[in-house]
């Protein structure tokens, strides 16, 4: 297992969408999620985590140690030999250990953490067997993400589209084309905030420096391999990383997040923002407390 990370991190992701739907709301017929009281757009944490998983899966192609546990069903069954390599075991010794090894639950957990990048990063819930007193329970991963929220209120727009081809024979007899809808946000800049706990990396999942590099790459590129008709043009514009000098951290996260401000370049403009150039992103480096390093990517 690689050495776990030694520093706590907090990070801010700024990403935007142009003529697309960043995250549809299943409760509202796939309209882009927004808070109906304020009209600020929302992208859920799980949506972003999905993109990170997909990126890692694309780049690593199920390389040993970088598998993705929650994936869209490609069966894979070539894990057995690798499993031994990781644990240095053969099947006999596992069976023996099963009987009288009280640390088997830890072994199961470690096995999963070592093999699966997403479990090492975000954690997982494992079934528990009370009768075997095998309690793997919940693995908390070091990386934690909140919901992303748009900088300004969004105004989702319904776009009606037509198609010339029809699906069924019956329809073909009676109509030439059908209408469909999609929802887009003309433009919005979103901000998400996240945390990396070095403690959980060290004590539970073994999330290491290489994993962290991969995480930053995945965040910066999370939309690059995720093009689709629904999403339009999405891009991560900036990833601002606060690296604490210590494991437990050197400053409260909220103070660090407060140093990043995003404002409209022209605050009195009557027109809504339509591109990233309409915004100013500032990091007040003076206000960053001692012991915290600011790294900007993207």
């Amino acid at each position: 297992m690689a050495k776990p990370i030694k520093n706590r991190y907090d990070f801010v992701i700024l990403f935007d969408v142009e003529n697309g739907n960043p995250n549809g709301d299943p409760d509202a017929g796939n309209v882009p999620r927004f808070d109906p009281e304020t009209n600020y757009g929302i992208v859920t944490d799980v949506c972003l985590k999905r993109k990170i998983r997909d990126y890692v899966e694309t780049v690593k192609e199920d390389a040993p140690g970088y598998r993705i546990y929650i994936k869209s069903g490609v069966p894979l069954n070539r894990s057995d030999a690798e499993a031994y390599a990781y644990l240095g075991l053969d099947s006999k010794s596992v069976k023996e250990r099963k009987k009288d090894d009280p640390t088997l639950d830890i072994q199961v957990r470690d096995f999963m953490c070592e093999n699966f990048y997403d479990i090492r990063t975000f954690g997982a819930v494992m079934t528990t067997f009370m009768k075997d007193s095998l309690n793997c329970g919940q693995v908390r991963g070091p990386v934690q993400l909140g919901f992303a929220r748009s900088i300004e209120p969004i105004y989702p727009q319904e776009v009606t589209i037509t198609r010339l081809a029809v699906t069924t024979e019956e329809d073909a007899a009676t109509k030439n084309n059908t209408m469909g809808y999609k929802y887009i946000v003309p433009y919005a800049l979103y901000r998400a905030e996240g945390y990396v706990s070095a403690n959980l990396a060290r004590k539970t999942t073994g999330f290491g420096e290489e994993d962290l590099e991969l995480l930053w790459d995945a965040i910066v590129n999370m939309f690059e391999n995720d093009r689709s008709a629904g999403r339009g043009k999405m891009a991560v514009r900036q990833l601002i990383i606060f690296k604490h000098a210590s494991e437990l951290g050197n400053a409260p996260s909220y103070k660090l997040f407060d140093t990043v401000t995003v404002t409209r370049k022209d605050p009195v403009s009557p027109l809504p923002a339509r591109s990233y150039r309409d915004y100013d992103v500032e990091i007040d480096r003076e206000a960053v407390p001692e012991g915290v390093e600011v790294i900007v990517r993207g």
Partner: peptide, 9 residues
Amino acid sequence: MSGGQKPLY
């Protein structure tokens, strides 16, 4: 872990 075949995802 003990060499069997089970989908692990």
